[in-house]
Write a protein that binds this DNA or RNA. Structure first.
Lengths: 221, 221
DNA sequence: ATTGAACCTTAATAAAACCTTAAAATATAT
DNA sequence: ATATATTTTAAGGTTTTATTAAGGTTCAAT
């Protein structure tokens, strides 16, 4: 997935771009409204994320120009003002979604994926996450081979990596929804996968959220 | 699109319904607050339009009840009073839009469409309050993990944060209504949650209102 | 000031949830 | 057919969280 991100706060932009790229989303960045509009016109993006308050030209203005020229790229507006009024204004001008600042990047990713319909990463041959490099085709994680179930577990966790997955979800994904397997299956394979992550000296870990599920985290200290 | 319209002025209602249906919007009508609430609870509407002044139960009351039960259907408030105060009140209680009477039906339709366009905006995964950032999905509060019960307590307090919740209410919300637990459960978890707020250096506090309950406050000095 | 009720905090115990390991069963390759 | 790898099962251990209980503090009424 390839997106355009128009945002003038460099600090925020850096952080967001970092996370998005980690999730396999390729990001182009413009730090003002004019550049943003010029890029946005090109029909190469799967989605455009527009901050409202921008130098030279506001997000609303860009939005209006784009819709006037019938550029159909899905657009998500970002604004510090969570007022319903602003929300309405953006949506009336033809934005597809609206997110109030500050927002959780997981939320942004979820909405990007909702808009782009096809669950990203799904058909990628290779998935990067943190210092990990998973090759689906060869079922290798960095220099280690994974078994089938280990690989399926990893793939499950790599779909929307910021979202925790519960055991039932994982069971369905690996053993099929008919099979009402034991939670212990999951625990065992989480344990196996953790062992391999450790062996790789990866900074990626599988975090347990009690009663809720598991998720991948990239430990940056 | 299917909507619920709660309005006691029959003459107005007829006219509005007529225009909406002509635009392909299917409308159900309730002419008083009580019926309105009973219908509104059903998660089958794309939007609910609430008049403020209603027999038996005001639009604000309906709104409050709905948000308390975590009904996420988008809501548009209608009021003869275009007072800014009323608008703020409605939006604070969780209305998504506000329209002053008299209004043009074209305006209403535009707003209905704006609201229905947004994809699943209603199910917020993240709740902000003051300097707090609660991520329901990952059960994190800013950078800290919460346990299940802590999270449930916080969620309870975050529903209509301006209203104090008494211990019984909290017990029901966390331990279920059948369980007639000890008030001390609540006190213990309030204490735990306070400890985490302190650790976060948050300006949000849990205020005790003796004999009445607890509420969140955002301390701005 | 004294008192009792409501509330707070903390620590211990109990109960779940989760983790790990290894043996048994099954599948796969040689 | 045998060896090897993987999956399933099972058991026991570890950790986290929930509950209980006890003693302390605050508050408001007298």
């Amino acid at each position: 997935m390839r997106i355009l991100y128009v945002e003038d706060e460099k600090f925020l932009a850096d952080a967001v771009i970092h996370v998005l790229e980690k999730s396999g989303i390729s990001v182009e960045w413009a730090d003002n409204g004019e550049d943003g509009l010029n890029l946005a016109i090109k029909p190469i993006y799967d989605c455009i994320i527009l901050d409202v308050m921008l130098p030279k030209m506001s997000g609303f203005d860009i939005l209006r120009h784009l819709r006037e020229r019938e550029v159909k790229t899905p657009i998500i507006m970002l604004s510090a003002l969570s007022q319903a009024e602003d929300k309405i204004k953006g949506l009336n001008y033809g934005a597809d979604d609206y997110l109030a600042k500050p927002f959780k990047t997981a939320e942004l990713i979820a909405r990007l994926q909702a808009l782009s319909r096809r669950p990203a990463l799904q058909d990628e041959k290779v998935i990067r996450f943190g210092d990990l490099y998973y090759d689906k085709e060869n079922r290798t994680l960095n220099e280690l081979d994974l078994t089938e179930k280990e690989a399926l577990l990893l793939e499950t966790l790599l779909i929307e990596p910021d979202r925790a997955k519960n055991k039932e979800h994982i069971l369905n994904h690996i053993w099929g929804s008919d099979n009402y397997g034991d939670d212990n299956y999951v625990e065992v394979y989480v344990s196996y996968l953790r062992k391999k992550l450790k062996k790789l000296n990866s900074k990626v870990q599988i975090k347990t959220i009690r009663n809720l599920g598991y998720k991948l985290v990239y430990k940056v200290e």
